[in-house]
Simulated scan of single mutants.
Amino acid sequence: MVQIAWLGKKSPFCGNVSYGLSTTQALRERGHQTHFIHFDNPRSPESGSTSLLANDPDVSLPYLVKSQVYTIPSPGAQRELRDSLERIRPDIVHASLTLSPLDFRLPDLCQQLGVPLVATFHPPFDAGMRNLTAGTQQLSYQLYAPALARYDRVIVFSQLQAEVLIRLGVPADRLAVIPNGVDTDRWAPSRHGGDAVLLQRVRQRLGSERTFLYMGRLATEKNVEALLRAWRLVSPQGCRLVIVGDGPLRGTLQNSFNESGILWWGYEADLNTRIALMQCAEVFLLPSLVEGLSLALLEAMATGTACIATDAGADGEVLEGGAGIVLSSQGVATQLRTLLPVLRDQPVLTAELGRRARQRALERYRLSRNIDAIEQLYGTLLATRPLAA
Rank of each mutant, 00 (worst) to 15 (best):
T23M: 08
A373P: 03
S329Q: 08
Q111Y: 04
L362F: 00
G169M: 07
G114E: 02
A26N: 02
V326D: 04
S190D: 06
L27A: 10
Q112K: 13
T350K: 12
Y378C: 08
F104V: 08
S11N: 12
P248D: 14
A309D: 05
L27G: 04
G15A: 09
P347A: 12
C307D: 01
C239H: 13
P45F: 11
T184W: 02
L61S: 08
V332H: 09
N272K: 07
A134C: 05
S49D: 14
G322F: 04
Q68N: 11
V244H: 04
P248T: 01
P146Q: 09
G128V: 03
L367E: 06
T310S: 10
R250S: 10
D126W: 02
L165K: 13
T310G: 08
V154W: 05
T133Y: 03
L298N: 02
I275S: 04
S18K: 10
Y214S: 04
Y378M: 10
N41A: 10
G331M: 09
I166D: 06
Q254L: 01
G245F: 06
R201L: 01
K222M: 10
V69T: 15
P248Y: 00
A306R: 05
S60M: 06
V2N: 12
L132K: 13
L148M: 12
Y365N: 11
A188E: 03
L263V: 06
D108G: 13
I72S: 06
F13L: 15
E352M: 12
T220R: 15
R150D: 07
T310Q: 10
L271S: 11
F212S: 10
G313K: 07
S22V: 10
S84K: 02
R217M: 09
E225N: 03
G379K: 13
W231N: 11
P57L: 03
L233Q: 15
